[in-house]
Amino acid sequence: MAHDPTTDPQKELYSLALFSEAPAAYLLLSSQGRVQEANAAACALLGHGAGALRGRPFARLLTPDTQGTFSWLLGQAAGAAARVQAEGQVLHADGTVLDVLLSLGAQQPGGAPGPLRLILTDITPYKQAHRSLLDLTASQEERLQAGSTRLRATQQELEGVVTVVMQQLQLPLARAMNYLSLTRRALGDGIPEEVARPLLQSERAVQQIVALTGSVGGYLQMRRMRLALRRVDLGRVLGEVLKGLQPSFADRHVHVTHDPLPTVQGDSQALAVMLGEYLSNALKYTRTREIARIHVRVRETESEYHIGVEDNGAGFNMRQKDRLFQLFGRLHPSRSYEGTGIGLVTVRRLCERFGGRVWAEGKPDQGATFWFAWPKSPVILE
């Protein structure tokens, strides 16, 4: 086919018009990175005329941190079939720093070697919005940390106040118990019913207050407990707990059995408290049984050990199970079964500090099983 010489100049003029009037900021660069030509949008973005830009190393229009990035782009664009991009900053003629996206590639990819075409996209508003978002996030994190610090300080102060109150109550409670005991002995065996009943009720009330102060003190001690992760043989822990509970077995027929117990990662003191509370709970609610049967169950999943203490005691209605692990969440009247409603809360709190959980299953008058799920890879949470 014969070459039409009239088409080449027309194409060149058309390409030049597209380059000059394009809304995007275009620059033509030599392989060394010198500006050969810049369109109107590029001149407006940089604040320099086309004449002032021609022959100038483009790197001098960049911030020092971006000059290394631009050198990398030049090296990549020399042999790349596609455009290469990076974020950077350019300097406007008035000294303003602009955030831009640098997109560099051959003017005609796959064609003869020639100038490189650089496209500048102003992303300053997006970067400012991003920095504002980061600043806001950092500010919120600082406020959250400050709030957490204040909350911990308030909790420590409250725990300190409660501890002092518990200590201050010990002496008047001991005096009250002593006074009631002396009064009962002074009155002798022939106490009229109208005197004996309120005296007995008063003594029981004081005993309940003493038990409550002891439970609250134990709960506070648990919250301050320093925990550590190490290998713990649950069989050994169970044996130690049962030794401590021997006085509760007096004058009773109690059979305690257990599945083979695993060795876990945990804190022996915390696990002893948890098993002790569950076993004490089982002993309490099997008191009316001629033979109390308590069995420690073990189930294993891929990520957890499920440890359950099963008994043949009073049981409970599953519709009320959510109250069991709440503070003072008793399901049975104190006149039937003593207790303060804090022991199971202690178990829940300790278990949750290791990333575990607790629950219970039961039926009225058919016994109950209290479970805790212990992670195989626990993490101590505060």
Rank of each mutant, 00 (worst) to 15 (best):
A205L: 05
L200P: 00
A153D: 08
L238W: 09
A211K: 04
Q156M: 05
T213H: 12
A174N: 04
G217S: 05
G188L: 04
L144K: 13
M177E: 08
K243F: 14
L200Y: 11
G239S: 11
D251A: 14
R185H: 13
R231H: 12
M177F: 03
S248E: 14
L227E: 02
R185P: 00
V216E: 08
L199P: 00
L182Y: 15
V232Q: 02
T149D: 13
Q201F: 07
L227N: 05
Q140K: 14
L212F: 14
Q155M: 08
D135K: 14
R223F: 00
S215L: 06
L212Q: 10
R236A: 10
A196K: 15
L158V: 09
E194I: 10
P192M: 05
E203V: 04
L200R: 15
E141I: 11
A228H: 13
A186K: 14
L171E: 03
R143D: 05
Q221W: 10
S139M: 11
Q140F: 12
R184T: 06
P172C: 09
A205D: 06
A138F: 11
T213G: 04
L234D: 03
A138T: 14
A228T: 06
R224Q: 08
R230Q: 10
T163H: 12
N178P: 00
V206P: 01
A153E: 11
R150T: 04
L234P: 00
V206I: 10
L234T: 06
S202Y: 02
S202R: 05
L220Q: 02
R223Y: 02
T149W: 15
E159D: 09
T154W: 02
A228Q: 11
S181Q: 13
G235P: 00
V165R: 08
Q208E: 05
E194L: 13
L227K: 08
G217H: 06
V161C: 07
E203M: 08
G190P: 03
L238C: 03
Q246A: 09
L229R: 04
L173V: 03
L136D: 09
L234N: 02
L199K: 06
R175D: 00
A146Q: 14
G188E: 05
L229P: 02
L144H: 15
G235N: 09
A174K: 04
Q246P: 02
T137M: 15
M225R: 13
Y219Q: 06
L169V: 04
L200F: 08
R175N: 01
G190E: 15
V232Y: 02
R236K: 11
R224N: 06
L242T: 09
Q168K: 11
L245Y: 10
M225E: 07
V237A: 00
Q145C: 08
T137N: 12
G190A: 13
R231G: 02
R152D: 02
S139N: 13
L242G: 05
L229N: 03
Y179W: 09
G214E: 10
P198Q: 10
R223I: 06
A176L: 03
A196T: 03
D135H: 14
L144R: 15
L242W: 13
R231A: 03
L220E: 01
R197L: 04
L200W: 09
A138Y: 13
E142H: 15
